[in-house]
């Protein structure tokens, strides 16, 4: 039994038009994806902007309305349960947001921000609560004296760590991290990534790691799903995705990563030209007539590719 199983998840947004505002079409943000996450593992969800990766994260945690599909948490179907407060699911699954500036309430002090989930689920005296918050701050590497400060007094990396402390407050089993480091500088990014790995080991946390940065995903995730047009085009281990990509979209994406070795410049250019050529010639083989991504097909043990 996996920690989280998502089956055929669909999130459609209606497009309304005309005088009566009738629904005449849908934006298929997420269009039938299935995946599962095991305890303590990281699944990387990669895609370009508009691919539906953030919507997937939001749907799993209950911030986006699910059109169809099923979500099971520890074997229990929670698809229609998500909206209800105080369920074990709400405790067990937490989220880290991309923008640490807008995800922390500027009018609240750190203690109120971090303690909010605790107040929702546990009844602690203010002394116990303060102690818990100080512990959490210690875990994320912030001094306990910071509890009475406001978010604007911190740098970007520190804010992101406050967000992580808040996500850790209820000892969750799964954290959905939506582009957790893309707003951060390189050196700060390294701090946050290391730290996420540490807490993963210590609390046996599972991550759904959503990112567009293929370098970061390579560092963080053992399994990767590539998303395009609301569907998975390729799912596999890190090695399979980076070294034996089979879908043309994955190939393009991998070839587009800037190579950090200047002497490889010409070679990369040749690879890119080859992939671009292949893309223009064989594109039709990888998409249906309606320009939809095919269903996933099993290639090897844990390597799935969307092929006809």
């Amino acid at each position: 039994m996996s920690l989280l199983e998502v089956e055929n998840l669909k999130v459609y947004y209606p497009i309304r038009g005309g005088i009566l505002g009738q629904v005449h079409n849908y934006v298929k943000a997420v269009d039938g994806i299935s995946f599962s996450i095991e305890d303590g593992k990281t699944l990387g969800l990669v895609g370009e902007s508009g691919s539906g990766k953030s919507t997937t994260g939001k749907a799993v945690i209950g911030l986006a309305k699910i059109t169809a599909g099923q979500i099971r948490y520890q074997g229990e179907d929670i698809t229609n349960y998500v909206g209800k407060n105080r369920s074990p699911y709400r405790r067990g699954v937490q989220m880290i947001f991309q923008d640490a500036y807008s995800s922390l309430n500027p009018k609240k002090r750190v203690i109120d921000i971090v303690a909010e989930p605790i107040r929702n689920f546990e009844h602690l005296t203010s002394k116990q609560e303060r102690k818990r918050v100080e512990e959490l701050l210690d875990i994320v590497g912030l001094a306990p004296e910071n509890v009475l400060k406001y978010p604007h007094e911190f740098s970007g990396g520190q804010r992101q760590r406050i967000g992580i402390a808040r996500a850790l407050a209820l000892r969750p089993k799964l954290i959905i991290a939506d582009e957790p480091v893309s707003a951060l500088d390189l050196s700060v990014q390294a701090q946050v990534l290391n730290f996420m790995k540490d807490i993963q080991q210590h609390f046996n946390l599972a991550f759904l790691f959503i990112s567009h940065d293929l370098g970061v995903v390579e560092h963080m995730c053992s399994d990767i799903a590539i998303m395009h047009k609301g569907r998975f085009v390729e799912v596999g281990s890190k090695n399979q995705i980076y070294h034996q990509p089979l879908h043309i979209y994955t190939k393009r994406l991998i070839a587009a990563i800037p190579n950090k070795n200047p002497s490889m410049r010409e070679e990369m250019q040749r690879v890119r030209e080859r992939v671009a050529m292949e893309y223009s010639l064989k594109r039709n083989q990888y998409y249906t007539k309606e320009n939809r991504v095919y269903d996933l097909k099993k290639i090897s043990d844990n390597h799935y590719v969307a092929l006809p």
Binding site: S187, A190, L193, G215, H219, K260
Partner: peptide
């Protein structure tokens, strides 16, 4: 330090 702190898809972990 800057070069070392960058995760790189082309370099082995």
């Amino acid at each position: 330090s800057l070069f070392a702190s960058m995760p790189d898809a082309y370099r082995n972990a």
